[in-house]
Amino acid sequence: MNISKIANLKFFYTNTRKISYYMSFFVMILFIIGIYWGLFIAPEDYLQGDSYRIMYMHVPAAWLSLQTYMVMAITGFIALVWKIKIMEIISIQCAPIGALFTIIALVTGMVWGKPTWGTYWVWDARLTSELILLFLYIGVMVLYASINDKRQAVKITSLLAIIGLINIPIIHYSVEWWNTLHQGPTVTKFDKPSAHTTMLYPLLYMFIVFNIYFITVIIKRVRLGIYAREKNSKWMEEYTDD
């Protein structure tokens, strides 16, 4: 192991404590602003009334759930090929966050589905793909949990994530195909509440906030991951003694 790699973990751990602390508050304020904007300022939709407002949680969560999987697979790829330790940690720590986004997207999708379709769950292409994505995340997490040597586990889950990333478009395409066969065009209004800019700005804003939230949580989780990996090392003992 060359020194720069240890230094990398150490550098990250020792320099992000304050940043992650302040970012938590920052992101909370951003969230409150976004929720206020979405729930009270944005205009009512003439078709769906107020119920569309859950879009401001649902759509960014769904985007982030995919984006997190991409981050997990790409950092996993970097970790496998160039053996960069911090990438290993980022890769595996993405999994629970991504699963959380997926669950948020699923639950808000169900809540939104009730007024739109009259039922909580329809086997619609988006929700079904999202559900499968959740299973992909769960697969990565259970595989990680069942391998004792965690550094070994990350290699295996990185590989699974990469294969999963190749598969996601295929799965998505096939689910779309399946959906058009069974559902017809009834669901197309799902996330197109007449694209008025006053509605779209808060959505864009929430997307950015979700991204900042992702970065905040990933920094926190990577710090935990570094601690778990390096707790026996000298610099960690010195650092925690201070």
């Binding site: 192991m1 040597d149 965690k150 550094r151 707790k231 026996n232």
Partner: peptide, 9 residues
């Protein structure tokens, strides 16, 4: 050569 397993040297 150096090798770790389960974080143990």
């Amino acid at each position: 050569a150096t090798c770790y397993k389960n974080n143990n040297l």
